[in-house]
């Protein structure tokens, strides 16, 4: 039966399982979604004086900070996607699937499909919270749609990273252990201040080489600047590059996982 279905249908079936599994574990959904909002609420108010620094690009620190929960949420999506796939490795579900004609690409993309649904829900929640707290979008309604699209692309990119790590490490605990490293990349970026206003030279250098800065700046440009083609190109470019690299590396990893069975 499965052999007669297209890759698209196989991906859909695995994605549906992944999404249902994710939404059944509400605790896993709730805390990852809440945590970025708590930081947004606290830092948005606590750092509001930062807008008095000469050269700061906006008068609303909340508008500046809104990009952060999107990227932080995407990082949580990567952990969810990775943990979920690692659980399938640990419990032997992947081994059982290997006995079916399901294609390895369908297995991988389907798992990421669940993460994509989660990333979309998170992005909508963060957007609504931003609007509710008075953030306005310099790029208008069209910009909001592009912001959602970029946010989902970023979530997908991080989900592919989670998937790759799960296939390589095969342990949920190991995936959880990776999270602090992702968190570090967020804080060592232009998440709290624009790069040109970072005083410590070494930090500015790190933030410049850190791709997370460009994901944030792509999202942020739509909120505080309007249409900035360069920022958007870098935002989409880095997220697509991350997804492509991870998928290319994940494909042989998935094949070797299945061969081992």
């Amino acid at each position: 039966m499965v052999a007669q279905t297209s890759l698209f249908e196989q991906v859909g079936a695995v994605a549906r399982r992944s999404a249902v599994g994710a939404f059944r574990q509400r605790a896993l959904l709730f805390f990852p979604m809440l945590f970025p909002l708590i930081l947004f609420a606290i830092n948005g108010s606590a750092l509001s004086k930062v807008t008095e620094i000469p050269g700061f690009p906006t008068h609303s620190y909340r508008a500046f900070l809104l990009a952060m929960p999107f990227v932080q949420g995407a990082m949580f999506v990567s952990i969810n996607a990775g943990t979920s796939l690692a659980r399938d490795v640990e419990t032997g579900f992947l081994n059982r699937l290997a006995l079916t004609p399901l294609r390895s690409e369908a297995m991988l993309l389907g798992q990421l499909g669940g993460a994509l649904v989660l990333g979309t829900v998170q992005a909508i929640v963060y957007l609504l919270v931003g609007i509710a707290t008075g953030v306005t979008f310099a790029s208008g309604v069209g910009g909001v749609l592009v912001l959602l699209l970029l946010s989902i692309t970023i979530s997908f990119a991080f989900a592919t990273l989670g998937g790759l790590l799960a296939l390589r490490l095969g342990s949920g605990e190991a995936i959880q252990g990776i999270f602090p490293l992702l968190f570090v990349t967020l804080f060592l970026s232009s998440s709290s201040l624009p790069r040109n206003l970072i005083k410590a030279e070494w930090f500015k250098e790190v933030a410049t080489y850190n791709p997370v800065s460009y994901l944030l700046e792509g999202l942020r440009s739509l909120v505080i600047q309007g249409w900035n083609a360069q920022a958007l190109a870098k935002g989409f470019g880095f997220s697509i590059a991350l997804a492509t690299i991870c998928l290319l590396l994940a494909r042989p990893a998935m094949k070797s996982r299945l061969v081992r069975t």
Binding site: L47, K49, V50, E52, I53, G177, P180, F183, V184, F187, L188, S192, L193, L197, I198, K199, A200, W202, F203, A207
Partner: peptide
Amino acid sequence: AIIVPSIIFPLFFLVAFAGGLSRISDIP
């Protein structure tokens, strides 16, 4: 696995806050 996160987290906060946000000291 127990001691490393206990050390990394405060060091990371020190680096991120003291390094990344040092411009805050310029606020009037």
